[in-house]
Design a protein around this nucleic acid. Structure first.
Length: 278
DNA sequence: AAAGACACCTGTCCGC
DNA sequence: TGCGGACAGGTGTCTT
């Protein structure tokens, strides 16, 4: 479920409900996520949420802690893994199966974390979250100026992995998940099997453009579902209509009509059109 | 430093 | 209808 656009959509969805509000209680029904939810997470209780930010697919809830003298902060780090979602609910609404955590705020609303597979995470840090072990070595944000041709191309030199695995590497750039990797390569006309280090600068130029275009389009699409974010259940389905290759094995290419292929790269499925991509 | 395999866990879908 | 197996939007960790 969560690729970067959905994480960003989630961020925008919860922000107005929690920013500036005080956390009443953190209810942990199931602490065994990817890592055990630390007991220190309860430091959020009584604190106010000052910002809801995102770095890669990590959401950061920065909290102002109520210590006597000095102003201290702490940050909840949330990752949605493969199957996680955050929804705004009335705190009184009974949790369903896999609703593992509620962060209840002073308006009676709660952020509810649901995650059937439990690959997600909820962590707590009182240091700079960007220096956290999980965040400090992440590559640039894909939509920022730091993700540019010079950087992208230089990073690729000497790499023997496929270009698809290369763009999915979070140390190279964050936020390019399996769907967008496939879709960006299709739009750029580049075979996913191409060797990263042997691909021309010109191709990287095109790929860079397409990654940015696909991600920003998807964020915009996500934006249209923001309206019903609160009551929405399950997948918004906003961007399925724009998928050219992902999940379309054996179906005709929407551009040229030839059969979409499915292969495995790095234990992940790759979909591509061998006629349109070289 | 880089690459590849594996791990975590549950739900769903497909073939028999 | 039931069962086994493959597969799923992610990424840290361990080994080579």
């Amino acid at each position: 479920m969560p690729e970067l656009p959905e994480v960003e959509t989630t961020r925008r969805g919860i922000q107005p409900y929690v920013e500036g509000h005080t956390v009443i209680k953190v209810i942990v029904r199931q602490p065994n996520l990817r890592w055990k939810v630390p007991d220190e997470i309860h430091a959020m209780e009584g604190a106010s949420i000052v910002s809801v930010r995102r770095r890669g697919k990590y959401l950061l809830l920065e909290c102002a802690l109520n210590s006597k003298q000095q102003q201290r902060t702490g940050t909840a780090i949330i990752h949605l893994g493969m199957s996680g979602s955050l929804r705004i609910v009335d705190a009184s609404q009974p949790p369903e199966k896999h609703d593992h955590i509620d962060i209840v705020v002073d308006t009676g609303k709660a952020i509810r974390l649901r995650d059937p597979r439990r690959f997600g995470a909820l962590l707590w840090t009182t240091d700079d979250p960007l220096k956290h072990k999980l965040l400090r070595s992440l590559g640039p944000e894909p939509l920022s100026a730091d993700f540019n041709l010079e950087y992208f191309y230089q990073q690729s030199r000497g790499r023997s992995v496929s270009i698809k695995q290369f763009i999915m590497n979070t140390h190279v750039v964050v936020g390019v998940g399996n769907i967008y990797a496939c879709e960006s390569l299709f739009r750029a006309g580049i075979s996913p099997k191409r060797v990263a280090g042997k691909t021309s600068k010109k191709r990287y130029q095109k790929l860079l453009q397409m990654i940015k275009a696909v991600l920003s389009e998807a964020i915009e699409q996500g934006g249209t579902t923001l309206r019903d974010f609160v009551q929405a259940e399950g997948n918004p389905g906003y961007f399925q209509q724009k998928l050219f290759v992902y999940g379309r094995a054996n179906l005709p290419c929407l551009v040229c009509g030839s059969k979409i292929k499915q292969i495995t790269q790095g234990q992940r499925s790759t979909f591509y059109c061998s006629h349109c991509q070289h």
